[in-house]
Design a protein around this nucleic acid. Structure first.
Lengths: 338, 338
DNA sequence: GTGAAAGCGCTAACAC
DNA sequence: GTGTTAGCGCTTTCAC
């Protein structure tokens, strides 16, 4: 704790007015004389008045804190999202509490259930990829704590959501593959129930359709989002009846896994098998061959999510909004046939 | 906010005792009858009593929140440290607020100066690499907010610090280079004033000395910690009078930059120029050739830092401790001469 | 438009 | 060992 701070009491005493007037002026309640209001405001800033959030929270039943629940923070995408959230939270004097689920739905549930009443005013969440039930989130919302979902969102819950443009990103990715000359395009997908997975799958199918190509059931593999999942999926694809000539992976991690599998099997990447990812993790430009991908606006996603949550927090009946941010195709070596 | 919660008042009423007794029992103040205490504790857990931190904070002048100030969160090391901090904070019901400086000492200063009185109980900080003055941190400590430094620590401030074993890590790294047959070993170092930089440099020099080798002034280059810095430093080394045959980089990012520079100049890595890093960022096993490095116990550093800060917070006069955690040499391709 | 006063849930003297 | 009471700094009726 830093030393004794200026309180509204001090300001009231100096200006010889009541503390309630000071409180009202400071909070922009418009039933206060503009003259006195100005005096109060200028004195407050002169004295470096900072509200005591504990007192404020105790009186109002809030605490200027938002919780973030996500699978990991140790990867490019999430850490960048957090950086975005952090920036907005910092500007608005909000604290953030981090809860990491390790991508386990059980841990997610535990966190939600342990979540101390009056611990956070609102929640920003990216669900675990193996989550099947989202009722615990619905409960939280029903009890009055707003939630904004980002990236991996719970399909059926009606609240604000922030996502990248998964459909169009996937569409562009696959279109790029087609234009590069690949024809037998497989999709290493994510967990089935997630909106993200579904939209990228739809984008994939739509692009194939547009160019008169077809997919095969065996070319669409659903699993988790890790590098290891990608590697396993790739081996499966190599074993299947009709070997594809290109892979659209749901994210860069899985694309990397696929590349590792291809290297292990001595299949030249690009030339014999095109690979495209999604995210633009820095690793995609570091690996060799470098990975073509669709860049996600991670920082922006963090900012917008936080912005929306702040609105839910301040405006009593703010209507849920769904924000979709565009991605950007970044062509590198892994989709070069020659 | 979740719905109305159980308070000590409720517990007191049900048990027909006073709230102060409840408060005392809950806080383990030992002047309470063990029978009633037990009753209180069991009722509290039955009712899922959770303390209201705002009220607690208001009464005690604390707020169960620790601040983390660091350069970035978007890299492996820091995000892993945060994961460690988060885990301990979660277990102890502490909130964390993140402040990111973008490795700029000005931003760092701004954050410190804006730091709301009564916003955080204590601070965990990794200083910006261009910081020269640490008086603002000293001020904070003097005013009663404990700080624990980790990784990049302020040399001259007397408080707890948590670091990896920079000296021995560097020593082992260079020893490995020597044992692999390299003789003209250069050091791509970090910013001069940091303890971390100095210790790794000393480890480097000590290893050379032990094996009767010498360094040259032109072989020791100080700059920042980024990949770009590493690349630039490598070009400089290639231009210098006596070209080295191996590089010990202060971290993996810089080692990666060096590798990129070597690739650009078509100098075979390992064979003609050994490269070793420090951190064990996942990228080091992904790039090709894979990078030999010294693994840092990032997660552990986060945990221990948080643990120490918690002690400073709870024990009135906890003496500063310096914790040094060992690293581990991980041999990969970049130091293979054949 | 402004003030007085109660109260948010807890802690910490101070009595007994 | 336990109860009473006065705050912590703020918001918010309710009067005026």
């Amino acid at each position: 704790m830093l030393q004794s701070q200026v309180t509204i009491k001090d300001i009231a005493k100096i200006l010889n007015i009541s503390i309630s007037t000071v409180s009202r002026a400071l909070r922009d309640t418009y039933d206060v004389n503009s003259d006195t209001k100005e005096k109060i405001l200028s004195l407050a800033s002169e004295l470096h008045y900072v509200p005591n959030y504990n007192a404020m929270g105790l009186a109002k039943g809030t605490n200027h804190t938002i919780g973030i629940i996500l699978p990991f923070i140790t990867n490019y995408y999430f850490s960048t999202v957090i950086t975005g959230i952090q920036e907005l939270a910092y500007d608005n004097n909000y604290n953030i509490v981090l809860f990491v689920t390790n991508d386990s739905s059980e841990k997610e549930l535990e966190i939600i259930q342990n979540l101390a009443v009056s611990r956070v005013d609102g929640l920003l969440v990216c669900v675990a990829s193996d989550s099947n039930s989202f009722t615990h989130f619905q409960d939280i919302i029903n009890r009055g704590t707003p939630i904004v979902f980002f990236d991996k969102v719970a399909n059926d819950i009606k609240t604000s959501k922030v996502m990248q443009d998964d459909f169009n990103g996937a569409f562009e990715a696959v279109e790029h593959l087609i234009k590069s000359g690949y024809r037998k395009i497989a999709h290493i997908a994510g967990s089935k129930r997630l909106t993200l997975t579904q939209r990228r799958l739809q984008g994939y199918l739509a692009a194939l359709k547009k160019y008169g190509l077809t997919s095969r059931d065996e070319w669409i593999i659903h699993s988790g989002f890790s590098q290891q999942d990608g590697e396993n999926d790739m081996y499966a694809l190599l074993e299947c009846g009709h070997r594809p000539d290109a892979i659209f992976a749901v994210n860069d991690r899985k694309a990397l896994g696929a590349i590792i599998a291809l290297k292990n099997k001595n299949i030249p990447i690009g030339k014999k098998m095109g690979v495209i990812g999604f995210t633009n993790d820095p690793l995609s430009s570091i690996i060799s061959p470098s990975l073509t991908t669709v860049a996600e606006p991670a920082f922006e996603i963090g900012k917008r999510s936080c912005e929306l949550l702040l609105k839910h927090l301040t405006k009593k009946h703010f209507c849920p909004e769904e924000v979709i941010l565009p991605g950007k195709l970044i062509v590198r070596e892994s989709t070069q046939r020659s």
